[in-house]
Amino acid sequence: MPISRSVVVASTPSAVVDVFNEIQPGLQANNYSEEDIFAIHLSLEEAFTNAVKHGNKMEPSKAIKVDYSIEPDKVEICMTDEGEGFDPEVIPDPRYGDNLYKPAGRGMLLMRSFMDVLEYSKKGNSLRMIRYKEKRNPKSAGKSR
């Protein structure tokens, strides 16, 4: 059964737990596999962490809006923070050179790998990601080498 909802939560790292707890039963009810649920959970965590840290700059008075829809064949999540946005093209590839040894900067790569679609708004403070059901293997990672 398709589910579509919009939630606004406080910009604190732990708030993502409530968001996932709300989404998870819908995924199970629509027969998403454990692989799909793992991928969606991971991508949601990474997107939320970026929104809290880099978007809303760890200000708990700010909010994050999550719109999601769960359909029999795909899950779509849109997330918007109150930050100034950023240009995703300038984020360095964490897999090469000195970046490989840096402790941060892998969230976007993981989202791109585990979801089928990852798009940012022009301003960069809003993202949209989609995963289609029964996609068994994550995409071989990214374009830049």
Binding site: F38, Y101, K102, P103, R106
Partner: peptide, 16 residues
């Protein structure tokens, strides 16, 4: 069973 990229950062710091 589940970890995020923040744990990868932790492992890198620990390995250093």
């Amino acid at each position: 069973k589940f970890l995020s990229s923040a744990v990868l950062g932790l492992l890198i710091r620990v390995s250093k």
